[in-house]
Design a protein around this nucleic acid. Structure first.
Length: 645
RNA sequence: GGGCUCGUAGCUCAGCACGGAUAGAGCACAGGCCUCCUAAGUCUGGGGUCGUGGGUUCAAAUCCCACCGGGCCCGCCA
């Protein structure tokens, strides 16, 4: 069954058998070793290659070049292999073009889900991603999380796992309380713009106004004391907030000015925020209603922005629900029963290094042995709990639903994520520690520096997407002005969304991205539009074919055709590797290569008016197969495959 | 100070897990290609001490060690 849907594996097995036969015949008694295969640099050198003579030559003390020549002389052929040659010590296999092309192409065109090799060991998997704080819009930075997470989810699901996608709603803590405070000042109005922008505007405006007030006050004190260095420092702070205030006033004039005016009447905003926060934590109904409503406004905005891109969730888990159900307290109780929790200056602290050493976690999880893992504060000296404790409770919740948990969370939380796993191990939940994976990713930065929700300084996903779609629309209109506007818009959406997603998926997650408009909106080679365009071309050829003559696959001898066939054959293993290693980049890179090879083929060889009908048939099959694989790889990336552009 | 991570062409990045043939793309630059299935394309060209130095190996961008440079994190934020 596996060889049926994985032609490359079949080819490799055949070559492997032939090589083993020849080795035992020519050099009886050599110890068995794993036969490696590589792809030759150029398809004209063959479809598959093995450097085994380098290994073999050591055992039998002969020159590898000579060994290769001897082996090739004796090796048999098979139905898939037409010739074998020795080149520079490598053994290169050339396929029987007719058999191989038939195998690959017919495997593809008879299976619209070609490539999605199913795992033999399906598990229940939770992917938690996005989990953006519900106090500012989805920025191009949080979008990286969402887009990566969504792609990982697709990979896991297509691999055959039982998948559930979760979003943790971070509604506890001062930040949301601050936004609620600001919203109350405004008289809790309904949003008059997309919810995430509305809440983001309120949050940043409130924060900036409070900080301005605070810094001004401190500055006055410092001036009285004539503390010069403090004055300079505070003046810089002040400048930062004043700049932010100018932007906020420009972007949210009504919200900002109203908050600025009303906040001046509040004597001590900070203590009011603390009060609001405490009321929420203790589940006081009127405050809960406010919190939940404001958070909902923001989440609705998230779901609009991300939903446009096809990113959806199975569950939204509220942090507050965990707290109210005393789940964090339960974790704390269990931790306190161990010997690893100690009191320090009134706070409760977990001795992570102690746990790791006693349970051998460093070896178990491949961490540096001599490195001392920092301690973790669980409870403040005022008795309130900290985030990691809630995160532990959340992990336990997730494991009540799944065997494996993948958390898509910024790389800066790597230590905190490790500490959660350590805590789970400490309370006897070793399997959870083992099966929780932190999928870290790096920031998206603006050329002028980091984004900041608190200052309202960010590039939102929505504005990037809008620009991208607009640009795509202009492009479509330029090319095909006669299409009805609705259709042009629909194409522009596919292209515009695809461009943004591809840009974020095509660089490795642990590399910082400096956001660049020109690059994000690049529609040329190595972009989603480039791949989509190739797909549209395949569709166009198929659409224009009046009939499909019988195929003579033996005629697909051009290197450009052979290259495409080899690539198609490798797709299942590319998928498998990308899914098991959680590396979307492998798919973007594969899709780009396939599109590239297809375009070369397209410009050099005719399909519909090829020399012979049997060649037309064979090339049409090739085009159809390429279409399926381009579409299936785009699908994994969450990018739509338009039939025309 | 310690941990993690990144360092590949002028710029942006693949390739590194599991070592294999002349290290690949794109952008930018120079020059060709639309009486022919959509030129969002294609072809040709220049451009590389793969951060540095050792080591392992028949073979190192890839593995090991040391160092240099950037980023992030290291007790009461989330």
């Amino acid at each position: 069954m596996i060889t049926m849907s994985n032609p490359l594996n079949k080819l490799r097995e055949e070559c492997s058998i032939l090589l083993k036969e020849t080795i035992t015949e020519s050099y009886p008694g050599v110890a068995e070793f794993e036969i490696k295969f590589t792809t030759p640099p150029n398809v004209t050198m063959g479809e598959l290659s093995s450097p085994l003579c380098f290994q073999l030559s050591k055992q039998i003390k002969k020159n590898p070049f000579q060994v290769a020549i001897e082996l090739v002389r004796k090796i048999k052929h098979s139905s898939l292999i037409s010739s074998v040659e020795a080149v520079n010590g490598y053994i290169n296999f050339h396929v029987n073009i007719e058999e191989w092309s038939k195998l690959v192409l017919e495997t593809v065109i008879n299976d619209s889900t070609y490539g999605y090799l199913k795992t033999g060991d399906p598990e229940k998997v939770i992917v938690e991603h996005t989990s953006a704080n519900p106090i500012h819009p989805i920025t191009i930075g949080t979008a990286r999380n969402a887009i990566l997470g969504d792609c990982l989810a697709k990979l896991v699901k297509k691999r055959g796992h039982d998948l559930s996608i979760h979003f943790l709603v971070n509604d506890m803590g001062r930040q949301v309380a601050l936004a609620v405070f600001g919203w109350k000042l405004l008289g809790t109005p309904e949003p008059n713009m997309r919810g995430e922008l509305f809440v983001g505007g309120i949050y940043a405006s409130t924060n900036v106004c409070i900080e301005l007030k605070k810094v001004n006050l401190e500055l006055k004190k410092a001036e009285e004391k004539e503390d010069v260095s403090l004055i300079t420092e505070l003046q810089e702070e002040l400048e930062k907030y004043e700049d932010a205030a100018i932007d906020l006033e420009k972007n949210y004039p009504l919200i900002f000015n109203s908050i600025k005016e009303k906040i001046s009447l509040v004597e001590d905003p900070s203590s009011e925020i603390v009060q609001i926060n405490t009321a929420y934590e203790t589940n006081q109904p009127d405050v809960v209603k406010l919190f939940r409503k404001l958070v909902k406004i923001c989440l609705d905005g998230f779901q609009e922005s991300l939903g446009d891109l096809g990113i959806v969730y199975d569950a939204f888990d509220y942090e507050s629900d965990l707290v109210w159900a005393k789940k964090a307290d339960e974790v704390l109780d269990n931790l306190r029963k161990t010997d690893f929790v100690e009191e320090d200056q009134g706070a409760l602290v977990l001795d992570c290094d102690g746990v790791a050493n006693i349970y051998g976690l460093k070896q178990r999880w491949g961490l540096s042995i001599n490195h001392e893992i920092p301690r973790l504060v669980l409870v403040r000296k005022d008795g309130t709990t900290l985030y990691p404790l809630r995160d532990m409770a959340y992990s336990i919740y997730k494991f009540s639903l799944a065997d494996k948990v993948i958390n898509v969370i910024g790389q800066e939380q790597a230590l905190a994520q490790l500490q959660v796993r350590i805590a789970l191990a400490a309370i006897g939940k070793m399997d959870m520690g083992d099966n929780q994976l932190h999928y870290g990713y790096e920031f998206v930065k603006l050329p002028e520096g980091k984004m900041s929700g608190r200052l309202g300084r960010y590039v939102t996903l929505q504005e990037v997407v809008d620009k991208s779609v607009e640009l795509a629309f202009d492009e479509v209109t330029k090319r095909t002005p006669d299409l009805p506007e609705e259709q042009r818009k629909s194409i522009a959406r596919m292209v515009g969304y695809g461009a943004v997603k591809y840009t974020l998926l095509s660089v490795d997650a642990n590399k910082t991205v400096i956001f660049d408009w020109d690059k994000a909106l690049n529609f040329e080679t190595n972009s989603a539009p480039f791949i989509q365009y190739s797909h549209a071309r395949t569709c166009n050829i198929i659409k224009r074919a009046e009939s499909k003559p019988n195929s003579d696959y033996g005629l697909l001898t051009d290197p450009k055709e052979r290259e495409i066939i080899s690539l198609l054959a490798s797709f299942p293993e590319v998928f498998q590797s990308a899914a098991d290693q959680l590396k979307p980049v492998e798919i973007t890179s594969y899709a780009n290569t396939l599109a590239d090879k297809f375009n070369s083929f397209y410009s050099a060889l005719r399909v519909l008016n090829a020399e012979k009908p049997e060649l037309i048939g064979a090339r049409l099959t090739l085009v159809e197969a390429a279409r399926i694989v381009l579409a299936n790889s785009l699908n994994l990336l969450g990018i739509e495959a338009p039939e025309r552009m």
